[in-house]
Write a protein that binds this DNA or RNA. Structure first.
Lengths: 359, 359
DNA sequence: TTGTATGCGTTATCAC
DNA sequence: GTGATAACGCATACAA
């Protein structure tokens, strides 16, 4: 935010804070209509209304009609808290995630949110915050939680597992000994395929890698796979070619450092698309041509990948499937059904132009 | 999803569905610890525990300690439903939005989520779904709702207003007669500045516009402003230059149509960045140079905008401010404090290279 | 098929 | 300061 805007924002806040216009406390806030009122209106007992609402037990079509009419007339909406208390379930899922501000996370969240709705659950989201985490736990507030990546420390995971609270890890496997169910993708196969392609199709032999954050399991697996793939092709591992690329910024910097380093390279594999995009940016600004001089491959297939110039060749995880499966499995676990301890979903190499193909 | 993957997904689902490993129903699921147990453990009454938990009324530091210790030992977490029922508040905000899958929405959601956390509220998100909307209403389930753009029909808005349920519109103004509080941005000023810049600095006189979706208020305002700005500069409005550009795809198509149409133009203003990006894409693929042949300007300043080649000149709304203010105002409204009926926040023209500047 | 009564876990209003 | 007790609004045996 530029200074001027910031000043403005303070002014706005201050103004509104000190706004003296008294308090409208319960001006038009009539007490919300309860079930009892609906019952009276329909000439039945509250219990009957409850049955109609939940499709429990049989009741004559006529009373059913009357009740529904009353509900409509009065604009009745059940009090979620009371219902939860009585039923012992909240009807909502928690989703713990480190951030929603990235392309990848937002599209994943989209999938999870619609899957949750489809399964009849509300979605409560919490950004890596131990406090909101706390509230979600203890068989309260939420019927179960989806935990993305490293959004939650191992200590908390341990507690969840101990309490038997329904939880499912996504894009992260269970810490040893905990046996929390999880859904991960086949990072190894993805990177292996990518590098096989670079070596076999494009004859690349000096392949650099931009590594992800330390705590990130996917990042670690992909880096491992990178080294493994080099080995399989009999290529030496050159530490100068393996640099930090957390996001586009760092990737840009690393790529420029790579160029300055004189350590010749003819391909860059980013641990994620954002990193690869940063790399392409840097290469272009330094006068290198992609893919003529350097091939670039990413991982994630975020939205912009296909619109880059050249379009980014990248490894696509089955985001849609991961999200739907995650919600489904969590719901199943909430219902007490035993589920697979771990699902490892296959990825797919999307060949576009940044590797050198003409597709 | 490619066919092979789809088949696989079915296989996975089927497998898990038919998994015969019985039911773990309440295997390690011990009944959650309640307040009463904490009370016994600490040698006090439940009422005292409640006081300690909520900092209500005075109590000796010693009992306070004992209670806190008991809570820690037993890993007690308050039951949210019971608490809500007793207090008449849920401690969560609802956020109704059409989608989270776009750059713009995800960064806005990020702001809203962290603001909510900061204000001590959980965030319940609902993707344009009348059913989840329904649950959020009626003074239940959430203490108030944030409604983004056209995420909710006017009928529902009317009901909300009638019930006096705390609600705040964001990126959309209140329908006439409803007086729901709202926070909007100054679309007019943004487009006007952009077009002034194109005309005055770059001498552009044939300016095309890519219009947004019909129901979108921002889109409508921006288009109006486009026509207004042309008028002010004495430029004719040519309907052939005003085409659909909902997203990148349509924008691409429209731009190509524009070129085929022989209706000469030297600038394109997109109603949003995604549209402008699509336009740039099309221009490039058709052999036009940006900005040499055609200037391009966007609206939103989404993340990728600055990384395009050339970097996109665009109008930036104060997303951070809008989000924080929205949460703050909603909370204030929930607390019964009268708030401004409408805030119209200023935008800023971010001049980069796609307009022709060398910045 | 429908109504009555009780409990869900917490907070709040009282007495003590 | 602290402890009993009555709501909070709904679901669900159980009775009718």
């Amino acid at each position: 935010m530029p200074p001027r805007m910031q000043a403005l924002s303070f002014a706005l806040f201050a103004h509104m804070k000190s706004s003296p216009q008294a308090v409208t406390m319960s001006s038009g806030v009539r007490p919300s209509v309860r079930m009892e009122e609906v019952a009276r209106h329909a000439g039945v007992s509250p219990a009957t209304v409850s049955r109609v609402l939940n499709d429990r037990g049989k009741c004559s079509a006529k009373t059913r009609e009357r009740v529904l009419a009353a509900i409509r007339d009065l604009g009745y909406v059940a009090n979620a808290a009371a219902r939860s208390l009585a039923q012992g379930r909240t009807g909502s899922l928690g989703f713990l995630l480190p951030t929603v501000g990235t392309d990848f996370m937002s599209s994943f969240l989209q999938v999870v949110a619609s899957a949750a709705t489809q399964e009849g659950y509300d979605l409560l989201i919490a950004l890596r915050s131990e406090s909101s985490l706390h509230r979600m736990l203890g068989r309260h507030n939420t019927d179960g939680v989806l935990i993305f990546g490293a959004a939650m420390g191992e200590a908390s995971l341990r507690r969840i597992a101990a309490e038997g609270f329904p939880a499912l890890l996504v894009y992260r496997s269970s810490p040893p000994g905990l046996s929390l169910p999880s859904i991960v993708i086949d990072n190894e196969a993805g990177v292996r395929e990518a590098i096989d392609h670079l070596v076999q199709v494009h004859g690349r032999h000096r392949i650099a890698f931009l590594r992800g954050p330390a705590g990130n399991e996917d990042a670690a697996r992909r880096e491992e796979a990178y080294r493994g793939a080099l080995l399989r092709h009999g290529l030496p591992f050159d530490p100068r070619l393996c640099r930090g690329g957390l996001g586009a910024e760092e990737a840009r910097a690393s790529t420029i450092a790579l160029l300055r380093d004189q350590a010749a390279f003819d391909a860059v594999v980013g641990w994620c698309d954002a990193a690869s995009i940063g790399a392409m940016d840097a290469l272009r600004s330094e006068g290198r041509r992609v893919p003529a001089d350097v091939s670039v491959v990413g991982f994630d297939d975020i939205g912009p990948a296909r619109h880059l110039d050249p379009a980014l060749t990248t490894v696509r995880p089955p985001t849609e499937l991961v999200g739907r499966l995650a919600v489904l499995e969590l719901v199943r676990r909430i219902q007490g059904v035993a589920t697979e301890p771990q699902a490892r979903l296959p990825v797919e190499l999307i060949v576009r132009r940044s590797c050198g193909c003409s597709g």
